[in-house]
Simulated scan of single mutants.
Amino acid sequence: MYCVIQEVELKKSDSHGEYKELEVYKNEWIMAGREVKFYSYRFTGERFERPIKKAYKISIHKSYRENGKVKKKQWSICTMDYYWIAIYGAGIYDCCNIESKAKAIGITEEELCDIIYKKLDLLEYKIKSEYQETEEYKTHKKHEGIINKYNIDKKEFEKKYGKDSYDKCYDVFGKLREPELLDFIKRQYEAHKERERSYYKNFKGNYNNNSNSSYYNNKQSNYNVEDKEKYKKIYKTLAKTYHPDIIKDDGEMMKIVNKLKEEWGI
């Protein structure tokens, strides 16, 4: 039992070539009377021509003797396009139901794959090596590298400055398009961090002062350890809910929460 791979000519290639260009695309619209814009990307221009119009018909052949005569039997497995192999690889499982093919032949899937790949691996290596020398492949890898770097830069930037902020300032090539907006985003971020530092500094100061008062000590003695743990959980939930940066108020609700904390002596 052996594998036969027959090269067949196609009238035309079924696959489209990669685009030759990657360009910046600016999205703009008006929302609530304010202009909103951000930069994205798209593939454009002509596509590369794919001149090779070949496919490969894979089949299994078996020779045997019956009544002193040599007979042959064959099973069709699948047909693979040249560019499919070049781009996606020669994966048998992607092109046919290998389980049913093996069952029809009367062998296991593993045995069938071993027979096929002894020949198919060599063909795949040859085709991929040829394709990787083409301008289409080199251009595709160049675009892929640009987009991968863009995704990394965007992720790092937005981890610090917030969701959807990168595309408002930079394009896919990493070029700064809106310097004034970038400056505003950075100043806004620093102002937020300063408010955060100031709040926690005051909060810590108030906590330390109150923890030394006779009132605090008197309250502390009214609860056992188990009760205090429960009140601590309640306080943490309230503090997260009514933090001024969350509800955007003047801090009045947080003052009430802190007063409860003092009264509970936790």
Rank of each mutant, 00 (worst) to 15 (best):
K101R: 14
G145M: 09
E144K: 11
N202A: 03
K54E: 05
S221E: 10
Q6S: 11
Y235I: 07
E136S: 09
G45L: 01
N224D: 15
V8P: 00
N258Q: 15
Y41I: 08
K219P: 04
Y117F: 08
D227A: 11
M31G: 05
H143L: 06
E262C: 07
D250H: 05
V70W: 12
E111R: 15
S40N: 15
A90R: 01
A191Q: 12
L260R: 02
K175R: 15
K232V: 02
K248C: 08
E135R: 06
Y242N: 11
C95K: 14
K155C: 08
N222F: 10
Y215M: 06
K261M: 07
P51Q: 11
I152P: 01
P51S: 13
E190N: 06
N222C: 06
K186H: 07
E178D: 11
E9K: 14
Y161G: 03
K240I: 03
R65S: 14
Y56C: 04
K119S: 14
M253A: 10
Y19A: 06
S100V: 14
K103A: 12
G33K: 04
I77W: 04
G205S: 08
G33N: 08
E196A: 02
R65E: 13
K119T: 02
K142C: 06
K255I: 13
G145W: 05
Y64D: 05
G91E: 13
K118H: 09
K72V: 02
K233Y: 01
S211F: 12
I85D: 02
F43H: 05
R195M: 05
I58S: 11
K240P: 03
S129K: 13
D121C: 07
L182W: 04
V24L: 07
S15Y: 13
N148A: 12
I92V: 15
Y231D: 00
E194W: 02
K168V: 03
S40F: 00
I58C: 08
K163H: 12
K155M: 06
I127S: 02
K219M: 14
Y83H: 02
L112V: 01
R34H: 11
F48W: 03
D164N: 12
E252T: 13
G265I: 00
E23A: 11
K259Q: 09
V8S: 07
A32G: 00
E109M: 01
L182E: 13
S100G: 01
Y207F: 14
K72R: 14
L238Y: 09
E229I: 08
E136Q: 15
H243I: 03
A102C: 07
I147R: 03
Q74N: 15
P179C: 10
Y189S: 06
